[in-house]
Design a protein around this nucleic acid. Structure first.
Lengths: 137, 137
DNA sequence: TGTATTCCCTACCTATTTTGTAGACTAATA
DNA sequence: TATTAGTCTACAAAATAGGTAGGGAATACA
């Protein structure tokens, strides 16, 4: 399941996309409009900024804004930033690979199937973007 | 990611499948052969029994055994028993549906995409069975 | 009938992760 | 230089994961 963090991230990002024309948006505005704890949201937006999804501006007239257009941000990107691996096993993760304990990959039949699951999941999450989850359509 | 519980479950189940001809298998034997904490494994096998995947027999000559053949146990079944929902959001779960907080389903664009992810994930997990992850092939 | 065997059940414990909070600090702007 | 608004560090409560302890109940067999 997606963590609250990731769910909040999507709510915040869609808000930013829908109000893109207004320029930088305050954290506090997003917090109020989308009912997300202010301080928690701060962390989330900061992580999204550090990973290149958002830009920010300090001081009066500042706020957060999308760096790319909504259809250039795959859902997989957001999930990886906030939740980490998308695969069901560390040993088949593309971006967060780790060796499984207690399981020799050559004879463990689980990894082949889980790589299959991963590919089918990513087929959706890599191709669907922020634009696909916007409200006003 | 799959929990240790579910991963252990798969290791135990494949062991049971591979030694099916020997009749009921002791928890302690599985624990040793697959390197899983004995008491933790007890819980896991018990859950699998209660959900109809395994049968058991008490007393001398007892142990656990598969009720159905390996190709009749979809991986999705095992995951649901031990990890719960497979979907990424409660509001698109087939077996564990719950309303999302802070999100009106009619206008939240996330659920449609996540239902799509769910379907693609299940396409694999419902059709692949224990048999597909056995070691001796 | 009694005893060893083996799963069943309840309760508990510890570490980690998730979720959220507090407050000081830095940068930009007017 | 005062105000605004993001940045950073640290902390803390709550939930979950992972694992442990010990007795109870059913079965087999002598």
């Amino acid at each position: 399941m997606l963590s609250k963090k990731t769910q909040y991230a999507f709510h915040a990002l869609t808000y930013l996309a829908e109000n893109h024309s207004k320029g930088p948006i305050l954290i506090s505005e997003i917090s109020q409009e989308r009912q997300i704890s202010l301080k928690f949201l701060e962390n989330i937006l900061l992580e999204l900024k550090k990973s290149g999804v958002l830009g920010s501006k300090k001081g009066k007239g500042g706020g957060y804004y999308l760096i790319k257009s909504a259809d250039e941000i795959p859902l997989a990107k957001v999930i990886r930033v906030l939740d980490g691996p998308i695969a069901l096993l560390p040993c088949v993760s593309l971006n967060y690979y780790e060796k499984c304990e207690n399981c020799q990959e050559e004879i463990c039949g689980l990894n082949r199937v889980m790589a299959d699951v991963r590919d089918n999941t990513l087929k959706v999450l890599e191709n669907k973007t922020l634009k696909d989850i916007l409200r006003n359509r």
